[in-house]
Design a protein around this nucleic acid. Structure first.
Length: 283
DNA sequence: ATTATGACCTGTAAGC
DNA sequence: TGCTTACAGGTCATAA
């Protein structure tokens, strides 16, 4: 479930197993995911030490000790799991290889990092750390919603002249990077804004309120991801499995959570994707 | 330039 | 039990 909070949860789960560790072996089991892997990816990863794991939007960036950075995107169905940590913080044993285990990193501490992605919408690339911001996939991204570059003035300017529904505009990664279908729906519910409203028709006050609302939704989700991380350490090594109690997402026909409302949550299609909202509370 | 649509893939659940 | 259909957390290329 990779939107920003899930990717951040995965990053936090991977970091203690990967940071400061050398990659002894990289198994690359197919030539591509969404795009071809970079040339000689397995060889370029082997014997490299991961200096640190970063996140930019929905991308995980692993800075290596040779000036290259491994870029990872989980797409729709990508998972990264840790197994076999010798300290016993993760799994005791390595599970049997699964279908769609496309890349497996064997770390010097005995941990094994497995990238599994049935739909193969994910991606990996290698880029120069020093110029990472100029990478084709990263250079087009808008500000981090939890960063200093995301503020009222930015959203106001981003919404100006945008006649599309605010739902679609918030999904545009150039406007703000890291939101996906779930958290846009949830943020608009909390902000009381109809997803159908034109972005350029939203009042100044409500645009201003949207900024802290988005931050709050994401921060709460990251917190909840943190708790599922603790489960993962005790359990089966599954990482990025995120449970959350949503107000609207996936709740079509169920009663609105707003006290005294109870109206049925609606599901509509916008730009080909499901939108969930309460027609009573969101105007 | 903005906007909407199809495309990329597989797996799962629901309906008949 | 089978078969068919709808749908899924993303985002890129294309065309209107």
């Amino acid at each position: 479930m990779p939107e920003l909070p899930e990717v951040e949860t995965v990053r936090r789960g991977l970091a203690p197993a990967m940071e400061g560790q050398a990659i002894l072996l990289a198994e690359v089991n197919r030539p591509d995911l969404r795009w071809p892997f970079p040339p000689n990816m397995a060889a370029r990863l082997m014997s490299r030490t991961v200096l640190r794991l970063r996140r930019r939007s929905k991308y995980i960036l692993a800075d290596l000790d040779n000036g290259e950075t491994l870029l990872i995107h989980l797409g729709m169905s990508g998972r990264m799991t840790v197994s076999g940590d010798p300290l016993g913080r993760f799994e005791h044993d390595h599970p049997a290889a699964q279908k769609h285990d496309h890349v497996v990193l064997h770390m010097a501490n005995g941990a094994r990092i497995t990238f599994n992605d049935p739909r193969r919408f994910g991606a990996m690339d290698l880029l120069q750390t020093a110029t990472a911001d100029r990478h084709k996939l990263l250079s087009v991204l808008g500000p981090e919603p939890l960063g200093n570059g995301f503020h009222e003035q930015h959203l106001t300017e981003a919404f100006r002249g945008r006649r599309s529904p605010v739902k679609s505009v918030l999904l545009d990664q150039k406007v703000v990077s890291g939101l996906g279908n779930i958290y846009v729906c949830e943020a608009l519910f909390r902000a009381g804004i109809s997803p159908r409203r034109r972005a350029d028709g939203i009042s100044r006050i409500r645009v201003a309120a949207l900024v802290p609302t988005i931050r709050q939704v994401l921060n709460e989700a990251i917190e909840a991801g943190g708790s599922s991380l603790r489960d993962f350490r005790q359990a089966d090594g599954e990482l990025g499995y995120f449970q959350h109690s949503f107000d609207v997402y996936g709740r079509a026909g169920e009663p609105c959570h707003t006290p005294g409302c109870g109206a049925p949550i609606r599901r509509i299609i916008q730009s080909g994707r499901s939108t969930f909202y309460c027609a009573q509370c969101q105007r």
